[in-house]
Nucleic acid binder design. Structure first.
Length: 489
RNA sequence: CGGGGUAUGGCGCAGUCCGGUUAGCGUACCUGCUUUGGGAGCAGGGGGUCGUAGGUUCGAAUCCUACUACCCCGACCA
């Protein structure tokens, strides 16, 4: 039982940290606040990337790459933007090291100071809009639909694997449009892409909404987001899509000539999801035995564990397994046949449960006699025997079942932990347990006070908000509809 | 960045208060035999500059100083 992890009820955050490490997803590195993403964790991220990339391309976007380092002066071009990010920027000041004369190893060469310091990008709006200035002259150059896969750095005070690390991997889309409407549509389209990805592939239900002014992206006119619920009832912002208006176009002087010959500023959007999605995936589904991965994102969808005795045992199992392997692969199912004789079956069972492999097949002497396979599903922990000649179709169907079941389970959990509050007392109690819909008077002052007293923030003003007369849960002032409150990661 | 805690074979810990043989335990690892349908058993074996750098002392894992990293609570954070 060396790899057992703490239980969720005992200590949720300890459970999360241990799970990430024990399942081989990531670990802390020797570099402060930065993680090492291990092969199994990276394999999941690669699947996410691949699916998202495909969705971006289907909606007309192209990939490009912009520099990691940004001239310091760029950051101050957009006033709100610099205020939002200045406090967490890593700065490059020198370009050379030299051996210390006193023998203290290498030291920064004081003579190699940069004339203008460079910022390690916390996000790339500035350097990209600076580039767009030279790419855009006419309405014929628009829309410009670019995505970048890369890494960014934000000097966070407190880091947690995947959820908040100083360096993280992400994609950032940056688009430029001729009209406001088109840019707004793009913003909403990408929000929908994110929502679809998270719900359909990650099997995590989300709430789509728009951020309040105080939670808005630094430099945006509007910030849209998807919010997911974790198993401790807290919210995790899973993706954002920003309508930038003409803010960056004005800051970087990006103008175009319209069909009518008029010169105008372009309209912009930016949108991103990060390795934080890994955190959402882990916390939304996993249990005290380890990861639970949705089949659509599992690097290994099916594992086959042979059970045999020394000698010819494995040979016999192999004969039966080989055609199954072939058929499963033909169905596009990723399957691993674990023939290692260095670990016992029981050990392997526990190991693949820890790693969240959706379906496990075990084949041993009993099965050879009866013509069956033992099927074990990770999500429900059910085990049963299935005739061997129908196993391939069965597994294909089972993977879909599991994907659906994981989603349903998460959706049911979210429903159970989503309540409406009508009094302040009730609000304070409910917000400890999950999402709360409540009236808000629309002022940042009230928002702040609620945060101060309860630690809960307005996650978003939901897009499907229905008009409803009411009174603010805190101030009692009139309100037109309910907003979503929760404690957040 | 403020408060609290931790740092000892790969991992988890004891030893530190009150300095003194060869730094110990569980697990993991290696070898052999027996095992193999839920994290195997027995026997033997290897692995440590006790986070880093200084200091006190005849002698430091243990006392003192500084630093670093990680964890928890805050603050901060899209």
């Amino acid at each position: 039982m060396s790899k057992a992890i703490p239980s969720r009820s005992e200590d949720y955050s300890h459970w999360y940290n241990e799970l990430v490490k024990k399942a081989g997803l990531a670990e802390n590195s020797s570099t402060r606040g930065c993680m090492v993403i291990k092969p199994y964790g990276f394999a999941i991220w690669e699947k996410m990337q691949q699916l998202l990339d495909q969705m971006f391309k289907e909606t007309g976007h192209e990939n490009a790459y912009f520099p990691l380092l940004i001239p310091k002066s760029f950051l101050s071009r957009e006033a709100d933007h610099v205020e939002g990010f200045a406090k967490e920027c890593a700065v490059v000041t020198h370009y050379r090291l030299r051996t210390d004369e006193k023998g203290a190893g290498v030291v920064v060469d004081p003579e190699a100071r940069l004339e203008e310091e460079l910022i390690v990008r916390p996000t790339s709006e500035t350097v990209i809009w600076d580039t767009y200035k030279s790419w855009i002259q006419s309405y014929r150059d628009l829309p410009l639909l670019i995505n970048q896969w890369g890494n960014v750095m934000r000097w966070e005070m407190r880091t947690r694997l995947f959820l908040r690390t100083s360096e993280f991997l992400w994609q950032e889309g940056h688009t430029a449009h001729a009209t406001k409407e088109e840019a707004q549509n793009e913003t909403r389209q990408m929000l929908d892409v994110y929502a679809k990805f998270v719900e359909h592939y990650m099997a995590v239900p989300v709430v789509k909404g728009v951020k309040t002014a105080s939670e808005r992206f630094a430099g945006a006119v509007d910030t849209f987001c998807i919010e997911a619920m974790m198993q401790d009832g807290k919210a995790l912002q899973a993706g954002t899509s920003h309508f930038l208006g003409q803010n960056f176009a004005k800051a970087f002087d990006v103008k175009f000539v319209t069909k009518e010959g008029k010169e105008e500023f372009v309209w912009g959007t930016s949108w991103g999801v990060s390795t934080r999605l890994m955190g959402a995936l882990i916390m939304a589904h996993s249990d005290d035995d380890g990861l639970v991965l949705p089949p659509k994102l599992a690097p290994i969808q099916v594992v086959i564990v042979p059970i045999y005795f020394k000698g010819e045992g494995l040979e016999k199992v192999m004969e039966v397994v080989k055609p199954i392997l072939k058929s499963l692969k033909e169905e596009g199912i990723s399957v691993k046949f674990d023939t290692r004789d260095t670990h016992k079956p029981g050990w392997k069972f526990a190991e693949y449960e820890l790693k969240g492999v959706p379906v496990r097949l075990a084949i041993g002497p009993k099965d050879l006699k009866k013509g069956t396979v033992e099927v074990a599903r990770r999500d429900t922990k059910e085990k049963y025997f299935q005739p061997i000649d129908s196993i391939v179709e069965h597994v294909a169907g089972l993977l879909e079942d599991i994907q659906d079941n994981i989603y349903s389970k998460a959706a049911a959990f979210k429903e159970e932990h989503t309540k409406g509050a009508t009094s302040w007392e009730q609000f304070k109690e409910l917000v400890e347990q999950g999402f709360v819909y409540a009236h808000w008077d629309g002022t940042p002052e009230t928002e702040d006070k609620i945060k101060e007293e309860t630690k809960a923030t307005i996650r978003c003003i939901p897009l499907n908000q229905t008009k409803e007369e009411g009174r603010c849960i805190f101030s009692g002032k009139p309100s037109q509809g309910r907003v979503l409150f929760a404690k957040a990661y």
